[in-house]
Amino acid sequence: MSFHVPPLPCAAPLRLATGQSLLIDPHPGASATSLEVLEGVARVFCPCEETGGMTLAFLQAGDQLRCDRLCSDGVCVEALTPLSFRRSEHASDEAGFDAVNEWTLQLLRIRHLGSAEQRLHALLSLLVRRLGRRCGAWCDLPFRLTHERIGELIGTTRVTTTRLLSRIRQQELLDVPSGQSGLRLAPALVESAPLAA
């Protein structure tokens, strides 16, 4: 994972290739700025050693990451697909939908489900509902997460995650097309998930 902290110009978009990460360092002038995703899907995570890269949110085109709401260590933005974003100004009293807070709440709700199987089911459904699309007989998710990352999100080990994903694949509810960067999930899996929105 590579981190770099370039200066963020207001108008020019910044691009990250899939797999690249950018450390967003909070600074005194950050209160009036946000990062607006123009294209792609990003994972927002905490860079602190204590949290081990804990995922806070996923962002897509149109979402904003408000720089005045970062922890003192900042946050990292990882490109899950080719990513383009720009710094923009916002009013300090701006209210309304906050994508990072909403994602953090949803991920916290998933972590409180009773079993790892329920948590995985709810996570896959949430990702598809928020970041995927229906395409024929399947729902497509445009990126993949490692089994280790999924384990972090659902509060289990990589080994348990692999076992649970294998079971879903055997039920033909999940397809991982070779040579492609995304996943395909059966609509029945998405629609029957705990905490379905």
Rank of each mutant, 00 (worst) to 15 (best):
V128C: 15
T33P: 03
H121Y: 10
L59C: 08
M1W: 11
R66K: 08
H27Q: 12
E172L: 14
D73P: 00
T55R: 09
S84A: 10
C67D: 03
R149G: 05
L23N: 05
P82M: 05
R169F: 07
E117C: 02
L164T: 01
T55D: 12
E78R: 15
T146K: 02
R167T: 06
F97K: 12
L16C: 09
G53L: 09
R158E: 13
I24C: 14
C71G: 15
R184V: 11
L189W: 13
G182R: 05
V176M: 11
T161H: 00
L59K: 01
E191C: 04
E152K: 06
G182F: 13
G151Y: 02
L165K: 12
V100R: 05
Q106T: 07
C67K: 12
I168R: 11
N101E: 13
T104S: 15
Q180T: 15
S178Q: 14
A193Y: 04
A193H: 03
R15V: 08
F45I: 07
L8W: 02
S21Q: 10
G151A: 06
S92N: 05
L164Y: 00
D63P: 01
R134H: 14
V100G: 08
Q180H: 09
H90P: 06
E49V: 06
Q106L: 09
V159K: 10
V159P: 00
A186G: 07
A99L: 01
F3T: 11
S21I: 02
L173N: 05
G136M: 09
